[in-house]
Design a protein around this nucleic acid. Sequence first.
DNA 1: ACCTGAACACCGTTCAAGT
DNA 2: ACCTGAACACCGTTCAAGT
Lengths: 255, 255
Amino acid sequence: MSAASTPSPPSRPGPPSPPGPRSAATTGRGRPPKLDQVRTVEVALALLDDVGLDGLTMRRLAEAMDVRAGALYRYFATKHELLTAMAEVLLADCLDRPLRSPDWSERLAELARRMRTALLARRDGARVYAGTHAVGGHTLGFADALIGVLREAGFAAEDAGRAAFTVTHFTLGHTLEEQAARQGAEPGPVDPERLRAAVTPGQYPHLAAALPVLTSTDFTAQFEFGLGLLLQGLRALAPGTTPVESGNTPPESGG
Amino acid sequence: MSAASTPSPPSRPGPPSPPGPRSAATTGRGRPPKLDQVRTVEVALALLDDVGLDGLTMRRLAEAMDVRAGALYRYFATKHELLTAMAEVLLADCLDRPLRSPDWSERLAELARRMRTALLARRDGARVYAGTHAVGGHTLGFADALIGVLREAGFAAEDAGRAAFTVTHFTLGHTLEEQAARQGAEPGPVDPERLRAAVTPGQYPHLAAALPVLTSTDFTAQFEFGLGLLLQGLRALAPGTTPVESGNTPPESGG
DNA sequence: ACCTGAACACCGTTCAAGT
DNA sequence: ACCTGAACACCGTTCAAGT
């Protein structure tokens, strides 16, 4: 809602693509198109929630939009391009409200939590995100915010970039596993059952000892633990860490 | 090679599966089968390197084994089950040599590095691993080793389990992105080019400042940075950290 | 016991032709 | 300009029938 920018420019640069459909009427002549990029992505995301990534086909999406499958290819050159547009929208709400905490590590944590929440909000969201490389406004804006928090904390651009990668990769890996565990991993029976059966205490003593936490469904606690480790490591690495009191104004007050 | 254990027991427990093919001759009567689980997984991994995960179909695998596609279903109930067996073999070499370092955090790092190396060793290895939930000997053994290192360092089983998850999720997320970046993300042009084009310094000042590291191809440095953050966080959390000297014997010398 | 042949119910993608 | 109809070249999976 509100002032969310469109996920990608309407006219694609590549020569093999058709003229360039906008999100609404193009010329004003003739009847309005039944399809457009924005609505197609919306319907695709709704369908994703219904049938999952493996069930999301161009034919089913076309049916949901009351159109033949071939018509979709006027707006997305490939299914992968559609998935990329979907991934872009997944992150749409991550920056819709300000980061209030004065503590940079808390602001960083908040961004990571928002990313996890955004991916969890739709069925197979993490898989969609992992399978694409969106470079739209939401994705780039999120990455910019992540690096921005770190640079304002005094990190050099290089370390800030690396740390942002680390946080993103951990969040993606965690959410991928969480989402797989939450819905029984596509086919077959539930995971903890198989794990319990496979872990023979004699062969895997440490695994057996940790079995309660390994089969726990408190994924938030798991995520916070990992995030805490990363933040702890970052704090130890942070430049100019005056141990306590003050130290709130960023070194560059440019932005 | 050597004494690598078979990835999974030959007879499957589920009632809807056929009798139970072993890896070689079953009765000794009749001509030997053209297929078996172990060889099928080997050929599938070789085919994966050739054609990638998206090109790996049951029909192509069957062709590579000089058999019709239907025959594969005597050994694997679904394609997903085959992929799970492949994922299991991916980690086969992770524990084939001892962890020599006396420093627990270095042993943990070594395990994470071996996991990354194992996933990178085959095309789309990280995607195969992420898409499955193997519970075979190699996967469980690796998890047991990870938790074991942490418990020997004095961590309680619960924290050890959570930390093992964190390391695994980071490694998976990183390797997924690394492997995607290494081969131009399936279709389309290379990523850094699109990223450079999309990052307008005015809109994304922090992204622009970090662009060199974001488009760097030194993935090992990136991985080591993230791993270092995690280890730093773990060291700060480690119980009974006698700063230097001795402290090598695990709290329980049972196993 | 193990595999073939043939089918079922789908896929993503292309493109002439209609309107 | 936008969509349909119809096809192309595939998929995963099942299962009677052969040997």
